[in-house]
Design a protein around this nucleic acid. Structure first.
Lengths: 196, 196, 196, 196
DNA sequence: CATGAATGAGGTTTCATTCAT
DNA sequence: CATGAATGAAACCTCATTCAT
């Protein structure tokens, strides 16, 4: 049942993996606790499955989004807009993928962390590329990448769908800030790729 | 025993509040689990005590640090440097103060969140003040504050004491970035307040 | 499916009735657990069926083997050789028929125990017969029978098909020992009935 | 609590290790199931503890009993009498030490089986000794030992304290049978060592 | 102030069995 | 005749907490 994944995601997001009991999850789904085991193998595998699916989707979507982007300027612009939109749309997956890393068994932990590293490397590569081409001026691409990711990801915490700003507003705003932060030298218009 | 607080902090940081058992804590401290109750009243109170102490210390230290600062420029500079230094020095307290909010009983939750709001308000007030005095140019002080806090706090995640950069390097670097980000108009030198 | 009986016998022999799960059995047979119930009615009935079939076969085979035997001497000789051969050939059935008696429901227990008693009575009757005819000299036919059965049945535990002794060697050896033990007065040759 | 070991022994004897639930055991002892864990670490350890204690006691007692015995004749006489008496007195320990071997975790299994082998070796050594001194005539000391042990141990199954024969009767009776079986050449009186 | 034993609730998981498809 | 999903009971075990000693 897909319902188990959905309810599990919600409950882990709300209470945390340790604090979510399978009893609770089963009740939410509307079955007995034992019946869960017709669909998952262990509680740990439920968590791992959610995180892996999320990371696979994240990487795939990023790579698809980056295809049309040509130069480092466009790539960074695309990355930031993608990250903000995706993290606003999937804030629960994103959140537990940070917060529940420590609840993963060692082997599972390695898998997820490797995927996260792959994602970070995409951004670092863009920064290094821009640096090599003389388009960006950034002291330390790795630390800069961490800073950018922290700022962007923070969006999950405070963004409210009905708030003053739309997701696109935030994407635009943050794109500008990031381009500034890396000393991007390309003259900019206001619009974003992917917008009408 | 102060050892209980110390070990509790470490264990909650490592495993999370739910995943830390009082048996584990007692073992770490070197006593039997029943003996813990001569020093704490409940597991919840152990958590609450740690978080409250942390927040009180954080607010007090911030206010003390801000005393000598005069104008918004100096205040922001001071705030950023203080925040970075403090979050690097107390990364465990800071981390659990974010991650274990949801483990707090409702009444305790309210207390801690109020203190966190007070801390954020310090920064928002500085930004608004600077805006009112025409020293900063920032579209939305609240959102700007959230962005700044996210970026700064991210330091807890990636900073390594033996890494390429010292805590002071990071403080300097981030101070510059933040002043840029809020459109600070004061001409700047390289040094930081509080340094030799 | 006959495969279920075979796999069930093996699993009960290896792990014991309580420790064998129908899931395990189904996996071994290559079907889903629910499908088992197209072939068996309950787990208990699987056990009971195995034990009853074993006991029926044992009694039938014994009676067939005893037909040609005439006097108590021949009968005892035949009984011992039959018992040893049969217990070596069907060690798994024999083993679970001892060890899983307690796993039987009360009514099923009575059935199997009655059949076991019938088997023991065959030996006791032979001893009593020999005693009445003055051919054996044994203090207590019942206790003697128990002792003989214990010694013979022990073969299941230690006999190895590729070991130093063949099943026939053991049969010969034990036949001699038992005849000695009951004070059999018939002069003996080395060969056994049923051998070439 | 020693009561846990006692009740555990009884329940494992009656129902088998797998079929005995800790709920049941706790009820028998008169505490809650969780309280059991103040005294045992796991169900497996309860079993292992019982078996190890039994085997240690068995080996120790045997060795003490054998001290006064001089020649192989006396040693065998002593061994048989000791074995019968001990197995009648501790039939439950003896029984589960055979029947629950397969319920032991691999490491625990190795420990217990090694001790059992040590016990068997005592008897084999006696037989070999007697053979070397020309006092016994036995074809295969190892197989003979297995046969003897099976017969003697069978006593657990059928002996009833209020039956026709006392434990001492059985010890006397079986000692004679075994000495006969190994072709002991020493002239015998009716009495047993250890009797008045 | 420490201990060891007790409690009762609750955790994850397994089980035999049923049944609609 | 097989499947997959459901059930409800029960399994072992852990937990926070209490309390007499």
């Amino acid at each position: 049942m897909e319902a188990i994944g959905k309810a599990g995601l919600q409950l882990i997001y709300e209470k945390g993996y340790e604090a979510m009991s399978l009893r609770h999850l089963a009740t939410e789904v509307g079955i007995q606790v034992g019946s869960l085991y017709n669909h998952i193998s262990t509680k740990q595998d439920l968590l791992f499955g959610l995180l892996r699916k999320h990371m696979e989707n994240l990487l795939e979507s990023l790579d698809k989004a980056l295809i049309p982007a040509g130069d480092p300027h466009q790539k960074l612009q695309t990355f930031v807009a993608f990250h903000v939109r995706y993290h606003i749309a999937r804030k629960r997956e994103v959140f537990i993928c940070y917060s529940e890393l420590r609840s993963l068994d060692p082997e599972n932990y390695e898998v997820i962390v490797a995927m996260r590293r792959a994602y970070e490397e995409r951004l670092i590569a863009i920064l290094k590329d821009g640096l090599a081409q003389g388009r960006f001026s950034v002291a330390d691409p790795q630390v800069a990448a961490y800073g950018i990711l922290a700022m962007l990801t923070g969006v999950c915490t405070w963004f409210r769908p009905k708030g003053r700003l739309s997701a696109e507003d935030v994407a635009t705003l943050y794109t500008g800030m990031v381009l500034d932060a890396v000393g991007d030298k390309t003259p900019r218009a206001a619009s974003l790729p992917g917008e009408a």
